[in-house]
Design a protein around this nucleic acid. Structure first.
Lengths: 311, 311
DNA sequence: GTAAATTGTGGGACGGGTTTCAGGTCAAAC
DNA sequence: GTTTGACCTGAAACCCGTCCCACAATTTAC
C-alpha cells in the first residue's frame, strides 16, 4: 500500500509539502501543487484515515449506546443523531447494550481508550454516577433528566404532556387506568415521570399491581394483553403506539372487547387505531445530544413533549 | 495523557514488556507482570485504540450504508448486522446515504482510506459496477442479487414467495391488481422481481400506469392512497405492511371502501390489519452480510423468503 | 555433559500521517 | 538601503502502539 512517503519520494518533494497538498493548505506554489497532485492521482493514493486520527488526536466518531434496535423510539432517536452527526462531519458508531451493564461498561472503557470523541447513552442500566465519571475522558451524554448528577443531557420534558394526557383521561370519566411502563420506576426516569403525573392528576399513586412493567415491543404488548384481559381496566396508557397495538391484537385474537387506550411516540399504529398519543420530538433531542457529544454545547438541553388528542 | 512509554519508564521495564502485559501474552514472568500491572492500574492507563488500529493495520470496523433509517426493513437488517458484528468483536458505523450517489461515493472513498475493514450496502443508487471496483480495498457487500456483477452479496430469493403471493391473489379472483414499488424497476432489483413474478403468474406484465412507484414509508402510503382512490384497483400489493397501512389510513380518513391488500416484511401493522405478507428473513441476511464483510465468507449467500397468507 | 529448545527481556523499526520550527526568497514599506 | 513580512519548502519530532529480532538464562533431551 502506498503512503505519503512514497508520494514524497516519487514526486521529489518533502512529506510536509505532500501533506499540505492533501489538505489543501496554503504555502504551496501552484506548480508544485500540480506536480504532487499528479503523482497522487497516478498512484491512486488515498491517505490513511486511522493514521490521521492518531496524529490529530481526534477520531471524529461518536459512539451511540442503544439498548434495543427494533423499536420506534430508539430508531427515531438514532436517525436524528446520525443525521446531525453527518452534517458536522462526524461518524456514528452503534453500540448495542441490550440493557446489560457489563456491555455498557465495555463501551465506557472503549471511550476511555479514545475510540470516540463523544459518547451518547440513549438509555442505560448502570447508575448515572458511573457514566458521569467517564466525562473526564470527553463528553458523555444521556437522553434523560439526570437530576442531581452532573452530566451532559438532552431530553424531553414529559411532565406537562403526561399531565395533559391524564387530565384528558380523567375528564372522560375513566376509573381504572392501567399504566404500561418500559421498566421499573426506580430504574427508569420515564416510568417515574409517568407515575408522578398520574399521582398529581388523580390525587393518589397508581396501584402497582395494576400496571404492566417491561413493555418495549409490540410482542410485549401482546403479553400485556393477557394480563389486562384478566384485570379489566377501562383505560390502558401504553408507553408506545406500537405496544398498544400489541395489546389490541391480543383482545381481537381472543374475541374480547378492548379497553380504551392511549399510546406514545406518535407512530403509524397509533394513527391506525385512532388513539391519542404523545410526540416526544425525538428529532430535536437527537440534534441536541449530538451537539453535546461533540462538545459544541455544554450542560442540559430540555425539549417539550406534545400531547396529541384523538378519538 | 499517559502512554505506553510512560508506563515503561515508570515501571522500569521496556515498552515491549508493557505491551505483552497489556495483551496478556506469554513470556513475561509473574513478578514483572504484577509490577507492570500495578503501574498501569496506579496511573489509570488505557491504551489508545487508534494507535492499535494503525499498528495492526485493522480497524475492526464495518461500515453499513443505509438509505433511510425509520423504515422497518432497514431497521431490522441493521439490527441483525449489528448483533452479528458485535458477536465477532467488530463495530458497526452507520453511513446514511439518503439514496444519494454522491454520499455513496463518499463512503466508498472513506473505505479506500481504510476507515473500515468491510463495507455493506443495504441498498444503493450508484451502479453495482462502481461498488464492485472498490473490492480491491477489501470486502464490499450488497444485499441484493448482483446478477452478472462480481461482488459479494447476501440477499433473499424473493421469486418463489412473490409467485406464491400472486397465485394466492389470482386464486381469489382479483382482476385489477396494483403494485407498490419502492423504486423504478430499472433501478431496483426488488421492484423488477415483483414485476417479473406478476408477469409469470398473470401471463402479462402489469400496466405501469396502474402501479405506484416510490413508496418507502407510511407517509408515502397515504399519498399512494389518493392515487388508488381514483384508480380503484381491487387489490393493492404493497412493498411493506406499514406502507399498506398508510394506504388504508387514506381510505378511512376519506370514508372510502378500501381495496383488498397485501404487505411485506411481516410487521405489526400487517398483523393489525390481518393482511397477508411476506417475511424476507432479514436476520439471516444480516448475519450473512456481516460474515462476507469481515472476510469470513466469500461469494454469495441466498436466503429464501416466506409467504404468509392471512384473511 | 553438551546440544537444543523454551522462557524472559529489551532495542528499535514500523504503521502513516500532522505539525512545529528553521531557513531561504522576494516584494512592499519606510 | 534596510527592515518587515508574506510566501515557499524541508527536516525532524511527534502521535502511540505492535512486533520482529537479538541475546541471555534456564530447562529439557539425548
Amino acid at each position: 500500500m502506498t503512503n505519503i512517503h512514497d508520494i514524497a519520494r516519487i514526486s521529489g518533494y518533502s512529506v510536509s509539502t505532500v501533506s499540505r497538498v492533501l489538505n489543501h493548505r496554503k504555502y504551496v506554489s501552484d506548480a508544485v501543487r500540480a506536480k504532487v497532485q499528479a503523482v497522487i492521482d497516478g498512484l491512486d493514493y488515498a491517505p490513511s484515515e486511522v493514521a490521521r486520527d492518531l496524529s490529530r488526536g481526534k477520531t471524529m466518531k461518536i459512539g451511540v449506546v442503544l439498548p434495543i434496535f427494533v423499536h420506534p423510539y430508539y430508531t427515531a432517536l438514532m436517525q436524528s443523531i446520525t443525521e446531525a452527526a453527518f452534517a458536522q462531519g462526524y461518524q456514528v458508531t452503534l453500540l448495542p447494550s441490550n440493557y446489560q451493564p457489563k456491555l455498557e461498561k465495555q463501551f465506557l472503557e472503549q471511550f476511555r481508550r479514545r475510540s470516540f470523541d463523544g459518547l451518547i447513552f440513549t438509555s442505560h442500566e448502570s447508575p448515572l454516577a458511573d457514566l458521569a465519571k467517564y466525562q473526564e475522558f470527553g463528553p458523555v451524554v444521556v437522553c434523560e433528566d439526570p437530576g442531581a448528577v452532573d452530566i451532559a443531557a438532552a431530553f424531553t420534558d414529559r411532565k406537562d404532556s403526561y399531565r395533559q394526557a391524564f387530565e384528558w383521561i380523567r375528564a372522560r370519566g375513566y376509573q381504572h387506568v392501567s399504566l404500561m411502563l418500559p421498566r421499573e420506576p426506580k430504574l427508569s426516569a420515564t416510568s417515574r415521570t409517568m407515575v408522578e403525573a398520574y399521582t398529581a392528576v388523580f390525587g393518589t399513586p397508581p396501584d402497582p399491581t395494576r400496571n404492566w412493567v417491561g413493555s418495549m415491543t409490540n410482542e410485549d404488548g401482546k403479553a400485556a394483553g393477557a394480563f389486562f384481559a384478566k384485570l379489566q381496566p377501562d383505560f390502558v396508557f401504553s408507553n408506545g403506539d406500537d405496544i398498544a397495538a400489541g395489546v389490541l391484537e391480543y383482545y381481537v385474537e381472543h374475541g374480547l372487547q378492548p379497553p380504551a387506550m392511549m399510546g406514545q411516540e406518535n407512530e403509524t399504529a397509533g394513527r391506525l387505531m385512532g388513539i391519542s398519543t404523545i410526540d416526544h420530538h425525538l428529532d430535536a433531542v437527537g440534534q441536541a445530544a449530538l451537539a453535546l457529544a461533540t462538545g459544541a454545547k455544554h450542560g442540559r438541553v430540555e425539549i417539550t413533549s406534545q400531547f396529541i388528542a384523538r378519538g
